[in-house]
Design a protein around this nucleic acid. Structure first.
Lengths: 204, 204, 204, 204
DNA sequence: TATGAATGAGCATTCATTCAT
DNA sequence: GATGAATGAATGCTCATTCAT
């Protein structure tokens, strides 16, 4: 009985994932608004009715994509934030690497997150979770200011938006194909974002 | 005859503007996707059929909003870029001021531009015009690098995205109400964006 | 201007009626649940979208049918009730005649009213208006009891249900085709309902 | 073998009953159309697939409810009709008592029968069995007319509808909660229906 | 110009029923 | 027998766009 249930649970989770992954690909390609539920089902190779066996609505699919993948971001941010061996500078550097590096790992997911979540009012409800990411960055910056490593004259709050915006815009450039995204370019991007944020453009 | 035509043209232009302005308000409030053509017409105080006398489609209305307002951005960027009396640093500072300052002048327009154009794939066709703005910023940065005032080791292309992203994210914060937008805050935002971009976060 | 508006209003009212009448035929034939909005539109000879120009929903169409036709019943009941020259007996006789006679005038409407309104919980909201009809009958009976013409030992409330049920069941028989509905049969039905209600089955 | 089969049959019958009873409760609460097969299954505490092991379709469940409970009505009517010791009057009185009394015994079943069967075209196929009930009433009335106890000038056919309609409407009132259904009220209802049907409203 | 009636493509969602396990 | 995953037909409603007046 337990064995059967366990097997069923595994099958259920697997199907959910299958449909969710299909949705990621479909949303990434056509955007949430232009994606039909039947597109997702077709991509997953199931009948469209089955989508509703696993998700309450088309919106719920997007929400689940957000939740599971954002959990990954959130987790990463928290781990970085919690490392006492890293200076604020190093923490912010890691944040940039985590975010920009994610594009290499899962471009479709980044595409969906950037297009439908970060850059759209669609998931305002979830904004709280996004807000937390901003707050962690702000906290890292403030930590650096308190430790005397970062400039105290810039507003930590706005600074967190600046860093996030820089990251988000580069990701957007990759998503829209207006920026090169080969490995060398990705390294260059990381370097540029980190350097500007920390040392600025001005030559000394 | 000419006089009559001129009068008619003026009337026509006035109507176009009336409908376009109504659309700005409606798009700003509900977003492009959730705005119905009849909402625009109602806001403008005309029958919805009339919208189609002046615009080919709902999309065309957004395009026109983009074109007219973006022309203003474009114009501003070009003027800044063309001033030989300004160093690259000063030019970039002016760019930030122009963009962030626009929110005070016309929040609804900024809202639409940010939500529906800059942060959405909706106006990909127009990307060329947006691209030009990026290129002007890139050109200013490259100019500074050539003149020996800005660091040569950062990628000018990515750097332009970083600056743009920083600006866009702050505007987004204002649009979504997650950042304070009183006059003092706006000044602080300008300072923060400019300082980070030019001098970085790191204390020296 | 007024002339044009008046003309438009007339056209609008005419279209509403056209669609409503089509709906009556469709509901009468297939029942509310089995009738598609596009069936109504097809019967009316218009595009299905137009139905939504005149009615908020499929339900609203049924409601309007109920409201307009029930107004007729209501009106008739009130007029009968208001005639001081008629005894309670005569008033009840008129009620029976009005109801059973309506089948001859508009069988489809009666069909819809009986099947979808009177005999279904679908328009519970409107029950108040139906309740008023019951109350008028009850009032007539009570009037007869007070005047000493009708038996005081029967419950006027239940009696009103008895009379209404008798009428409704005969109409149902006609609607379902289980009762003959030629003119002679209709007369016989009126006689039977009136006689039983007033004088009973028992021979004296 | 036989013993095993018998045991299995008993178990099968028990399951059928379990599901059928659950369906009665569900249909009574939400109505046939708004009740999902899975609601029935949930109410019965089984998987919804199991419903289809015992019933061919959702309709079949309603049919079975009708058949088993109507058998009770039918049986009662036949027994009353078959009693030579009862006059037509007494037989009709018993019919009224049987029907109205059933509400006290099994309100949910009456609710379903009234809402989904008697007052709806849903079980037209079964109309024959309902027709038989009408015919038995008609036969009782005709018997009374032949015996000289009931008036020969009313149409026995229509009269059976009148009586049935009176009963059905009172039950409907109870089902919809528009009539009082305490014990005293039920007695009053029986009295009123019987008295009107037999002696009429008119005072003598 | 201006109106708003008319059109029809498009789509999410529900749920009875089937079937593999 | 029992489960619940899987299927897919069916349909109300929205709204951009057209067009007669």
């Amino acid at each position: 009985m337990n064995a059967r249930n366990a097997s069923r649970d595994r099958a259920t989770a697997s199907r959910r994932r299958q449909i969710r992954d299909a949705a990621v690909r479909v949303f990434a390609e056509r955007g949430f608004h232009n994606a039909r539920v039947s597109d997702i089902a077709a991509e997953a190779g199931v009948a469209h009715g089955l989508v509703y066996h696993y998700f309450a609505s088309k919106d719920a699919v997007l929400q689940e994509i957000f939740r599971t993948t954002w959990g990954w971001v959130d987790q990463g941010f928290r781990e970085i934030h919690a490392r006492p061996d890293l200076s604020a500078e190093q923490q912010l550097t890691e944040v940039v690497r985590l975010m920009l590096g994610s594009y290499r790992l899962a471009p479709d997911i980044v595409r969906v997150l950037v297009l439908e979540v970060t850059r759209s009012g669609h998931l305002r409800t979830q904004v709280e979770e996004i807000t937390q990411a901003f707050e962690l960055i702000e906290s890292m910056i403030r930590g650096g200011q308190d430790a005397g490593h970062l400039r105290p004259d810039v507003d930590a709050r706005f600074a967190s938006y600046v860093l996030w915006g820089a990251i988000d815009e580069v990701l957007t450039g990759w998503v829209f194909g207006t920026l090169p995204d080969d490995d060398a370019a990705i390294s260059r991007a990381e370097h540029t974002v980190v350097e500007i944020a920390l040392a600025g453009l001005r030559k000394r």
